[in-house]
Design a protein around this nucleic acid. Structure first.
Lengths: 205, 205
DNA sequence: CGTTTGAGTGTACGTTCGTACACTGAAAAC
DNA sequence: GTTTTCAGTGTACGAACGTACACTCAAACG
């Protein structure tokens, strides 16, 4: 049992982050108290300050952490890169899988994006915008289209991200696996509709 | 100064609803205390119970109220019903106008849908589903399409609603009018892309 | 006109909150 | 081996919380 000082601190820090993520699962960061977190971790309230200045600061950390998950997902999507016409199915499959595996993180992002402390909301929306931009470049790489204006690509990317965030939200609020399957199937169709629209689109240049 | 007993009660009730809507504008229902509301109204805390059993019950009332606004918007959209090809522009224009006029209501719905008390979240999502169904019947009336399966219509409707909710969210978080104009323009393009996709869609029957 | 009703008051309670302050004790630094 | 550092402790505080209970007093009622 040799544990360095830094290791022990890191362990407590992790415990605080995990406890916070768990505790705000059925409310929100703005309704989460420092004392609840401390009690859940099994530590005295004032010890919280050794790790974070405030609940909001803790929230920003959770945002970063959550988007590391998301970035891992995007890597999975890019890595798959299979035949052209079932890229929709595989991408949605990967998203669904990640939502289940990182359920707490996704729920956190979706909830705090709308209801969190100002800084947290801003951080989340900035990250999502970044996502949209990355997807836009992926789209041009994927389709090699030259008839699309950069603006339209960005707009299409936004539409897709919105639909996928909507899918994640729907999954998170649907406990029944059967109903979830229907929702996922619907999202697949939605994406195909969007793709049909995109294929028949001509940007005004 | 003749004010019946019921009128006075209704006035206080309204004051409570308005105060709650105002107070949770930068947090959430789950972080709103009965005492804050009472203080804002200028009434003693226990008086709250004369009107609502709990903050959650008050929230359900606010949901109903907000969706009355939304329904009025849908009526506006249906009433316009102009030439076929700028129905997108007019609908989005109406949405944008309503978001500004009923800013607090829209903000409330968007926030509490993700972060409110369970019952409130359920009420909001049920209402939005209802919305999707109504839009689906409007779509069939509008296009007279017979080559679409009911499921695909519902799915398309869901996509449009998701995009419009996304637009409302984006407007609500964008203070700068110039940036807002760009966002609205993007939403118009998104909707047109979706329509292009829909026009080229054939349901599998 | 006397009685009832009920919106709003006022006090009082136990709990939880954030945070200030002085502390301990083992790992880290010297 | 002595000193320093610092994650975590323990106590203590004023403020805010939900809610119980007894109340007032004007409108509504019979």
């Amino acid at each position: 049992m040799t544990e360095t000082r830094g290791e022990r601190k890191e362990r407590t820090r992790r415990a605080i982050l995990d406890a916070a993520l768990r505790l705000c699962e059925d409310s929100s960061l703005v309704a989460l108290s420092l004392r609840q977190v401390a009690k859940e971790v099994g530590v005295v309230p004032t010890a919280f300050y050794r790790h974070f200045d405030s609940i909001e600061a803790l929230g920003l950390e959770l945002v970063d952490e959550s988007f590391v998950s998301l970035r891992a997902m995007l890597l999975d999507v890019r890595r798959s890169d299979p035949a052209f016409d079932d890229i929709i199915d595989s991408s949605i499959g990967i998203l669904v899988e990640h939502v289940h595996q990182q359920r707490a993180h996704f729920q956190f992002i979706v909830r705090e994006r709308a209801a969190g402390p100002l800084r947290v909301r801003e951080a989340i929306n900035t990250a999502i915008e970044q996502f949209e931009k990355e997807l836009a470049t992926d789209l041009v790489r994927l389709t090699g289209t030259t008839t699309w204006s950069p603006q339209d690509l960005q707009i299409l990317s936004g539409l897709i991200v919105t639909a996928m965030v909507g899918l994640a939200e729907a999954i998170l609020r649907t406990p029944d696996p059967g109903a979830e399957r229907a929702i996922v199937e619907g999202a697949r169709v939605q994406l195909r509709m969007v793709v049909v629209g995109a294929l028949n689109w001509r940007s005004k240049l």
